[in-house]
Write a protein that binds this DNA or RNA. Structure first.
Lengths: 104, 104
DNA sequence: TAAATACATGAACAACAATTCATATATACA
DNA sequence: TGTATATATGAATTGTTGTTCATGTATTTA
């Protein structure tokens, strides 16, 4: 069952692992999960997840820098939304794996 | 563009982030990538990736504990293979995202 | 059974990442 | 323009994780 090896550069593999890192933190995955339902303000996210505003802001900055979420200001509030259609796909692929394993 | 919220337990979200963590390390993603082409012995992996045997063994233990790879002994050598069909899918979904972004 | 080979593992160290706390900035509104 | 609200950010602290180095275990073969 040996497939043809894909030729992926070391650099790309590094980027790939960096990318998966964003999903590898509970706080961030909860934020991502929440935003799958639609955009939400920082304070709403913090309240919904029962986290300190500062924690949410810090993690949002990480996601924003990576272009996984994008902010839109409306008055004093800033609404964050997922920036990329792929994110839901990756989230759901991983979720399917977890749920599949849970069944045994 | 608001979707219906999926009801996913905190516990499942935690497991999901733990799962993505395995992909969030350069060494492990390189090992996974290598094993996508088929099973390989520890020493072969180490040689191919130009890593110390100890580094590879440590990371393989992490992947093995998580049931992402499974070992098969043949004499002195131990061959590792990916244990789950989903792994390639997740790898490729992430890869597609990276390559898509590279294009701009 | 002694030596060589292949792999695993424990402990120490170093690097990194997340949270906390205090404070800064930006906007709205009285 | 002063105050309140919403968010961002820097520094310190703490917890986590990967690598290194030394050593242990299993298997083969002379």
């Amino acid at each position: 069952m040996k497939k043809e090896p894909q030729n992926i550069s070391l650099d790309t593999l590094f980027e790939l692992s960096e990318f998966f890192k964003f999903f590898g933190d509970t706080t961030r995955i909860r934020v991502i999960h929440l935003l799958l339902s639609g955009e939400m303000s920082v304070s709403a996210i913090a309240e919904k997840l029962n986290l300190e505003q500062s924690v949410v802001s810090h993690q949002l900055r990480i996601l924003r820098t990576a272009n996984l979420v994008k902010p839109t200001r409306d008055g004093r509030k800033i609404y964050y939304a997922l920036d990329d259609e792929h994110i839901g796909e990756i989230f759901n692929t991983g979720l399917a794996h977890i749920l599949h394993k849970k069944k045994g």
